[in-house]
Computed example of a mutant assay.
Amino acid sequence: MSTMIKMVRALTAAAAIAVAAPALAAGEAPHIPREQWSFAGPFGTYDQAQLQRGFKVYREVCSACHSLKQVSFRNLAEDGGLGYTEEQAKTIAADYTVTDGPNDDGDMFDRPAILADKFPSPFPNEQAARASNGGAYPPDFSLLAKARAAHRGFPWFVFDAFTQYQEQGPDYIHALLTSYEEEVPEGVTIPEGKHYNPAFLAGNAIGMAQPITDEAVEYTDGTPMTVDQYARDVAAFMMWAAEPHLEERKKIGFRVIIFLIVFAGMLYFTKQKLWRNVEH
């Protein structure tokens, strides 16, 4: 027993060192508070009103620099999403222009977007995007809520696995958008053209200036028009963009768990019946 305990302790220590080593090498990781999300947990669902507000923030603010190239206009009208009708999605698509072709003359041409099209990029290529943003390349928003996550260290990620908490990405996006500070603390150097943001995972200096301020986007449903609310709404929208079928996945998962429980019970009672007269 003592040998087993020693082995468990050794494995635990090794795991802690393995997890902590990258954080220590890169410096102390920023503290990212956990937020409350309607889509968190095994029974979580998207808030359609929040997704529509987040989409509005994206269209009016974020889309000037950030693409959404993995999302099609038809996705806006799918179940488990923003709740738009097909006609509303067509109207939104018609506001965008995409390049198509070649035509019969071999030339490319511009036309209004349709449901089958994906959201067009605000820049023709990466070089143009960097040139317009001081050398920084604005990341695509399609999968950012999954790709940018403030992973918690040992042993907290173990608890997250058991509680199925997978919202570290939206937590980070919300923290990033609400953590800009004008005053730089003593001892911290911010290069010219960068901005101080203690929540930025790649250091305190971020190339993107604070993108939004209070009352920058008009809400018509009475929701507060604050940076905190804007950040919360656009983070939820980005989570939907990264995982549009989240609600369906959770429903299927719940049904599978119920099936496995019932199936395990049936196997147990079948075994009891088949072997009841056999001596063990």
Rank of each mutant, 00 (worst) to 15 (best):
S2T: 15
S2E: 15
T3F: 13
A14E: 08
A16M: 14
A18M: 11
A21G: 09
A21K: 07
L24E: 09
G27C: 06
A29N: 09
I32E: 00
E35M: 10
E35P: 02
S38G: 14
G41K: 00
T45R: 10
T45E: 11
D47Y: 07
A49N: 10
Q50L: 08
L51K: 00
Q52K: 13
R53L: 06
R53C: 04
G54A: 03
A64S: 15
A64H: 14
C65I: 01
C65T: 04
L68W: 02
V71Q: 07
S72Q: 13
S72E: 12
R74M: 10
N75G: 02
L76G: 01
E78P: 01
G81D: 03
G81T: 00
Y84A: 02
A89M: 03
A94D: 14
D95Y: 07
T97K: 11
D107Q: 14
D110T: 12
I114M: 09
A116Q: 11
F119A: 01
P122G: 10
P124R: 13
N125V: 08
E126P: 02
A128G: 04
A129P: 01
A129D: 02
R130E: 07
S132D: 13
P138M: 05
D140C: 09
S142P: 04
A149P: 00
A150S: 11
R152T: 11
F154Q: 00
F157D: 05
E167M: 09
Q168Y: 07
P170L: 06
Y172L: 11
H174L: 11
H174V: 11
A175V: 00
A175T: 02
L176Y: 05
L177Q: 01
L177D: 00
S179T: 06
E181W: 07
E182F: 09
E183I: 08
V184S: 08
P185S: 06
E186P: 05
P191M: 08
G193R: 04
N197D: 02
N197W: 01
N197G: 01
P198E: 03
F200Y: 11
A205F: 04
A205S: 15
G207Y: 05
D214E: 13
V217T: 03
D221Y: 07
D221G: 10
G222M: 05
G222C: 05
G222R: 05
M225P: 01
A235Y: 00
A236F: 00
W240L: 02
L246Y: 00
E247P: 00
K250Q: 12
G253M: 06
G253Y: 06
F254S: 14
V256T: 09
I258A: 15
F259L: 10
L260N: 10
I261D: 08
F263D: 11
M266G: 10
K271Q: 14
K273D: 12
L274C: 12
L274K: 14
R276L: 09
N277L: 12
V278R: 14
